[in-house]
Nucleic acid binder design. Structure first.
Length: 935
RNA sequence: GCCCGGGUGGUGGAAUUGGUAGACACGCAGGACUUAAAAUCCUGUGGCCAGUAAUGGCUGUACGGGUUCAACUCCCGUCCCGGGUACCA
C-alpha cells in the first residue's frame, strides 16, 4: 500500500536524504565542458534560536533555482556556510560562561540538522565557517593585501605600497597628495614633500606617511563609543544615536582604530551599480549611502580683529547663488572659530562651544529642528562685491562633511532661511518673484537677478559659468564630495579575527604569510577592559609576546569574514592561496545572490569593495561580486492575544474585551486555530493558567491578532521542523513559495497549507490506481494531454527564470487538476512532469522517478523542453486598424495554432471581408494585440 | 520633510506588461460516499438587479480627473500603507 500518507512521506523523505548524502549527489567540481551557474544564499549567523520559517524562504528559492539550473545542464555551485564570528555568541559567553567556540559549534549543528530536514541541495563539502582558523587565515591574508596597498587616483585603482615608495623616491608626493586634505607632516604646516624630503625622513616617519595612503590604516578617529556594550560601533550599527543592538546611548570618542579607506572607491562603487542587477530600491539605498554631490570649493578672504587668517574655504553645490550669500557658517569644531572670534564675542562664543560639547549624539538627533548658533565677530569678504559677510558658527554645519564651513544663501536653502529668520538676519533675494519671502526656494530653474555677471541666466546654467570664473581667478575649484565615511574596522571584542600585524614602537607591520593564521588565543575572560580596549587586552602574554613587539588587542568586525566568503566556496580547502585562480576564473561572479535587504549597505558594500581591491591587485578577473541580487521579503509573525481581566484569572473573548478592564497577553500561536483559542490547551500551556476562566462569545474564545516580528517572547514563532513533522519537507517548500511573491514581506500563517499538501497527494495519485498500486500506461498522449503538458512546462520554466515561484506552484495545481479530469496516467505525460516538479518537491520526485524504473536519480535528469506546436492559442477580437486608422470592429474567438503563416491567412481573411475585397499588402497579427494592416 | 515601493473579493494572491479582471489556493455554502465523523470527490462563490430556469443586465482593481477603440496597467491630482534616509550645504 503506497498512499501519500504521513508515514509514507517520512519514509520517502528520509530515504532520499540518506541516498543524497551517501552518493554525494550535490557535489560539484570544475567542469569546463558545461556552463556554470553560481547560486548563493547569504550565509546565516548561527544564532541560538535556530531556524524559523522566515529563514528558509530565501534558501528554498535559491535551492529551486539551483536544482532547476542543474536539470537544465548547468554546472551549479550552490554552497552553504556560517558567518560564525559575532557579538551574540560573546554576550552569551558573558552571561552563561559558555565559550563562544562551543556555543557556536552547537548552534551550527542545530542549523545544519534543520537545513537537512528541508532537503537542500547544498554541496556541504564546500562548507565554510568564518571562525575556523583555516578560513580566517585568508581573511587575515586579504587584510594584509589591503594594508599593503594604496589607491592611485590617477589610475583609479589600488596598487602596492612598494610602488608608492618608488614614486616618492622619484618625485615626492606632488602628484599624489594625501587622501586626507587636512593632514600635515608632523612639525610643519605642509602637506607636500619632495624626493629629498622623503629620503631625509626617518623610517618611523616614512611609515607614518605611508599610513596616510594605505587602504587599511590606523588613525585616531571619532568613533561611536557605546559605554554599555563596551565597544565601538560602525556607522551602520548606530540607529538614531543609539546602538542597533540593545538601544544603548552612543557617544563620540577618539581612539586609534583600523579603518578601510572605502571613500577612495566611492565613485567606482557608484559606477559599478550600473552594470549589476540589483533592485531599484537596493541601488537607491547604496547611492544614498555613498551620497555623491558635485559642486565647488570657494575661498573667501577673512577679516578678523587678529587678522591672522587669510581665507576660509566652503563647499557648495550651488555656486550659482554666490551673490545671494548673506552670512557664513562654520562648524563649532572647526579650528578657525577660535582664530577669528573677536574680543567682544569671546564670551558668547565660548559659552556656545561649551553648550555644543555638552550635547550628546542622542540630543542632537532628537532636536534636529532646534536652531542654535553664535556670531564670531569676524567677516568674510565677498570675492566679487567685496562686501563684508558675517561669520557665524552653528551645529547645523557638520565638521566632517565638505570643509566644515558653508556660505549661507537663505533665499535658496531652507536651513539657511530658518537660521536667518531665527536670528533676524537680512535676506538677499536673487530670484525675484520666485522667492516669496516666507520660505526658501531651492529651484534650479529660476532666473537670476541681483547677481552681477550672472543676471538673466537660468540657475542651472549659471553653475558652470560661475565655477569657470572662480577657477580663472584661482579662488575656487570644481569638487565632488561624498557622504560616505571610511569604514571603522576595529572592534573591542573577543570573538573575531585578530589583526595580523605586530607593532614595533607605534607602527604596525604586516605579519609574514607563513606566520598566518594569527590564531585567536583561548581564554575564558571575555570582559571588555572598559577603557576602550577589547578582551584580548587582558591576555598580557599574548599582547606582549616579545620584549620589543606587541599585538593589536582589537579584532575585526563580522563584515570581514563575510566580505569574501563567496570566493572561498570556489576552492574551500586550498591551503596555498585564498582560492585557486582556475576555480576563481571558472566560477567567476555569483550569478544569483539571495538574501535579506537589511544587508544593503554594510555587507554588500564591503563585499563589493574587497572584490574591487582584489581585482585591482590582480587576484580576480572580475570586479563586481554579484551579478544579480534578490531580496526575499521578511516573513513576519502573526501574533495572538488573550485578554485577562485585570486582577483576575478570567479571560475575555476579543469581541467583548471593551466591556472590561483588560490586559492583553501574547498567547502561543500553536494553541490557537485561526482566531479560536483551544481553551483546554491554554489551561495546560502554563501552570498559572490551570484554573483560567473564560468569557466566551457564541461559544468560542476568539483571540486578538497583530502582525509583528517573529520572536520567542511573542510566542508567534513557527518552527519549520513542526511543519515538516506534520506535512513533510516537500509541502513546506512548496507552501513557502505559494505564500506570495518572493520579494514581498508577508505574515506567516498556515491557512493554505492543506491546499499544497492536497496537491502533492493528487500528484502522487496520478501515478497510482485507486488501491494505491503504482502503474502508468505506455500510451501516446492525446492532443489535450499534450497541450496540458507543454503549457505547464512552458509556464514553469519561464516563471523559474523570472524567480516567480508562487505562480509556478499554481501552475502545477492547474496541471494536476486538468490531468485528473482527463484521467491521464500515461508515462509519456507524467514522466516529464516529475522532472519539472523535482526542483520544488525533490523527495517525492525522486521516489516517483525510481518507481518509474530509473536507477539514476532525478537529480541527473534533463529538464524537459516544451514544444510550441502543442500549444493552442486563443485569439480575441479587437478593433482592426487599417493604415493606422481604426476602420471597424469585429469579434472572433478561436483556437489558433500559434504559427505565423496561419496567422497571416487568418488575418487576411478577416481583412478581406472588411476592406471590400481589397487584399492587404502587409498584416501583422499578434494574438491579444491590435491587428495592424497596411493596404 | 525627502527618495523608493505598494493599494485588486471574506483571505493569500493571478492577469501574457495596454487586450474577456479575480487564475490557483484558503475559507464559506450545498451535495455524494459513511451508522457517524474524519478523509476524499463534485457543484457554487466580487457586488447589485431581473428571471422558475438555462441565462441576461448593470457595476466593480484606494479616491477624483484625463489619454485610448480598449486602462488594475499610461498621465495629472488626492488619501492611505510599507521600506530607506535624516541638518551632507
Amino acid at each position: 500500500m503506497a498512499e501519500y500518507s504521513k508515514e509514507e512521506i517520512k519514509r520517502i523523505e528520509e530515504k532520499w536524504k540518506t541516498i543524497w548524502e551517501q552518493k554525494q549527489a550535490y557535489r560539484t567540481d570544475l567542469d569546463h565542458n558545461r556552463p556554470k551557474c553560481y547560486v548563493l544564499d547569504m550565509f546565516p549567523y548561527p544564532s541560538g534560536a535556530g531556524l524559523h520559517v522566515g529563514h528558509p524562504l530565501g534558501y528554498i528559492s535559491s535551492d529551486i533555482y539551483a536544482r532547476y539550473k542543474r536539470l537544465k545542464g548547468f554546472n551549479v555551485l550552490h554552497p552553504m556556510g556560517f558567518d560564525a564570528f559575532g557579538l551574540p555568541a560573546e554576550q552569551y559567553a558573558l552571561e552563561h560562561g559558555v565559550h563562544p567556540a562551543v556555543s557556536t559549534q552547537k548552534n551550527i549543528e542545530t542549523f545544519k540538522k534543520q537545513m537537512r530536514g528541508i532537503g537542500f541541495s547544498y554541496d556541504w563539502s564546500r562548507e565554510v565557517q568564518t571562525c575556523d582558523p583555516s578560513y580566517y587565515r585568508w581573511t587575515q591574508w586579504i587584510f594584509i593585501q589591503i594594508f599593503d596597498s594604496w589607491f592611485n587616483r590617477k589610475k583609479e585603482k589600488a596598487e602596492r605600497i612598494a610602488d608608492l615608495v618608488k614614486i616618492f623616491e622619484k618625485e615626492g608626493n606632488a602628484h599624489h597628495p594625501f587622501p586626507n586634505t587636512k593632514y600635515t607632516l608632523p612639525g610643519t604646516k605642509s602637506n607636500v614633500f619632495s624626493t629629498a624630503d622623503w629620503k631625509s625622513f626617518k623610517p618611523q616617519l616614512q611609515q607614518e606617511v605611508l599610513m596616510q595612503y594605505r587602504l587599511a590604516y590606523l588613525a585616531y578617529t571619532d568613533v561611536n563609543w557605546c559605554e554599555a556594550l563596551g565597544t565601538v560601533l560602525a556607522n551602520d550599527e548606530v540607529i538614531n544615536g543609539v546602538s542597533y543592538r540593545g538601544g544603548f546611548p552612543v557617544v563620540k570618542k577618539q581612539m586609534r582604530q583600523w579603518s578601510l579607506r572605502i571613500t577612495e572607491y566611492a565613485d567606482r562603487l557608484l559606477k559599478g551599480l550600473e552594470e549589476i542587477d540589483f533592485s531599484d530600491s537596493m541601488k537607491e539605498i547604496q547611492r544614498n549611502w555613498i551620497g555623491k554631490s558635485t559642486g565647488a570649493r570657494i575661498d573667501f578672504k577673512v577679516k578678523s580683529e587678529k587678522g591672522t587668517v587669510p581665507s576660509m574655504t566652503v563647499f557648495t553645490t550651488r555656486p550659482d547663488t554666490l551673490f545671494g550669500v548673506d552670512f557664513m557658517v562654520v562648524a563649532p569644531e572647526h579650528e578657525i572659530v577660535k582664530e577669528i572670534t573677536s574680543a567682544a564675542q569671546e564670551e558668547e562664543v565660548s559659552k556656545y562651544l561649551t553648550y555644543v560639547e555638552s550635547r550628546s549624539e542622542v540630543d542632537r538627533m532628537a532636536e534636529v529642528k532646534k536652531i542654535t548658533g553664535c556670531f564670531t565677530g569676524a567677516y568674510a569678504i565677498h570675492p566679487f562685491t567685496h562686501t563684508e559677510i558675517p561669520i557665524w558658527t552653528s551645529e547645523y554645519v557638520l565638521a566632517g562633511y565638505g570643509t566644515g564651513a558653508i556660505m549661507a544663501v537663505p533665499c535658496g536653502d531652507e536651513r539657511d532661511h530658518k537660521f536667518a529668520k531665527f536670528f533676524k538676519l537680512p535676506i538677499t533675494n536673487i530670484i525675484g518673484k520666485d522667492y516669496n519671502g516666507e520660505e526658501a526656494n531651492p529651484s534650479y530653474d529660476a532666473i537670476l537677478q541681483n547677481s552681477d555677471f550672472l543676471n538673466g541666466m537660468v540657475m542651472r546654467d549659471a553653475i558652470g559659468v560661475m565655477v569657470d570664473r572662480l577657477e580663472q581667478l584661482g579662488i575656487g575649484k570644481r569638487q565632488v564630495n561624498y557622504k560616505m565615511r571610511d569604514a571603522g574596522w576595529s572592534r573591542q571584542r573577543y570573538w573575531g579575527e585578530p589583526f595580523p600585524v605586530v607593532f614595533r614602537g607605534d607602527m604596525p607591520y604586516a605579519m609574514a604569510d607563513q606566520d598566518l593564521p594569527l590564531e585567536l588565543p583561548n581564554t575564558n575572560n571575555f570582559k571588555p577592559s572598559g577603557s576602550g580596549e577589547g578582551p584580548l587586552a587582558n591576555l598580557k602574554d599574548w599582547i606582549h609576546f616579545s620584549p620589543t613587539e606587541r599585538r593589536d588587542s582589537n579584532t575585526m568586525p563580522t563584515h570581514a569574514g563575510a566580505a569574501w566568503y563567496f570566493l572561498r566556496y570556489m576552492d574551500p580547502h586550498n591551503d596555498k592561496v585564498f582560492a585557486g585562480r582556475e576555480a576563481l576564473d571558472y566560477w567567476n561572479q555569483v550569478d544569483v545572490y539571495i538574501g535579506g535587504s537589511e544587508h544593503a549597505v554594510a555587507h554588500l558594500l564591503y563585499s563589493r569593495l574587497w572584490v574591487k581591491i582584489l581585482h585591482d591587485l590582480g587576484y580576480l578577473s572580475f570586479d563586481e561580486p554579484f551579478k544579480k541580487l534578490i531580496n526575499q521579503g521578511k516573513i513576519t509573525g502573526d501574533s495572538r492575544f488573550v485578554y485577562r481581566i485585570r486582577g483576575t484569572n478570567q479571560f475575555v473573548s476579543a469581541g467583548l474585551k471593551d466591556k472590561y478592564e483588560t490586559d492583553p497577553l501574547h498567547v502561543d500561536i500553536n494553541i490557537v486555530n485561526g482566531l479560536e483559542l483551544d481553551t483546554d490547551a491554554f489551561r495546560k500551556w502554563r501552570p498559572d493558567f490551570t484554573d483560567a476562566q473564560f468569557v466566551l462569545e457564541e461559544g468560542k474564545y476568539l483571540c486578538g491578532s497583530a502582525i509583528e516580528k517573529m520572536s520567542k517572547s511573542k510566542y508567534n514563532v513557527v518552527n519549520p521542523d513542526d511543519i515538516i513533522e506534520k506535512y513533510g519537507a516537500d509541502t513546506l517548500r512548496m507552501y513557502e513559495m505559494f505564500l506570495g511573491p518572493l520579494e514581498q514581506s508577508k505574515p506567516w500563517n498556515t491557512n493554505g497549507i492543506d491546499g499544497v499538501y492536497k496537491f502533492l497527494k493528487r500528484f502522487w495519485n496520478l501515478f497510482h490506481d485507486g488501491n494505491g498500486k503504482f502503474g502508468v500506461t505506455p500510451d501516446a498522449p492525446t492532443p489535450d494531454e499534450h497541450r496540458v503538458l507543454h503549457k505547464t512546462l512552458k509556464k514553469i520554466s519561464l516563471d523559474i527564470e523570472n524567480y516567480s515561484f508562487n505562480t509556478c506552484v499554481s501552475e502545477f495545481m492547474i496541471c494536476v487538476n486538468e490531468l485528473t479530469a482527463l484521467k491521464c496516467n500515461k508515462r509519456s505525460v507524467l514522466e516529464p512532469l516529475v522532472v519539472a516538479l523535482a526542483p520544488f518537491a525533490p523527495h517525492i520526485a525522486e521516489e516517483l522517478w525510481s518507481l518509474l524504473g530509473y536507477t539514476e536519480m532525478v537529480v541527473g535528469a534533463r529538464f524537459p523542453e516544451y514544444d510550441e506546436r502543442h500549444l493552442q492559442v486563443t485569439a480575441h477580437a479587437y478593433p482592426i486598424s487599417i493604415n493606422g486608422k481604426v476602420r471597424a470592429t469585429m469579434e472572433f474567438a478561436l483556437d489558433m495554432p500559434k504559427d505565423d503563416i496561419e496567422k497571416m491567412v487568418l488575418a487576411s481573411e478577416i481583412v478581406k471581408k472588411w476592406s471590400e475585397g481589397k487584399p492587404p499588402k502587409k498584416v501583422i497579427i499578434v494574438p491579444g494585440k491590435i491587428v495592424n494592416v497596411v493596404l
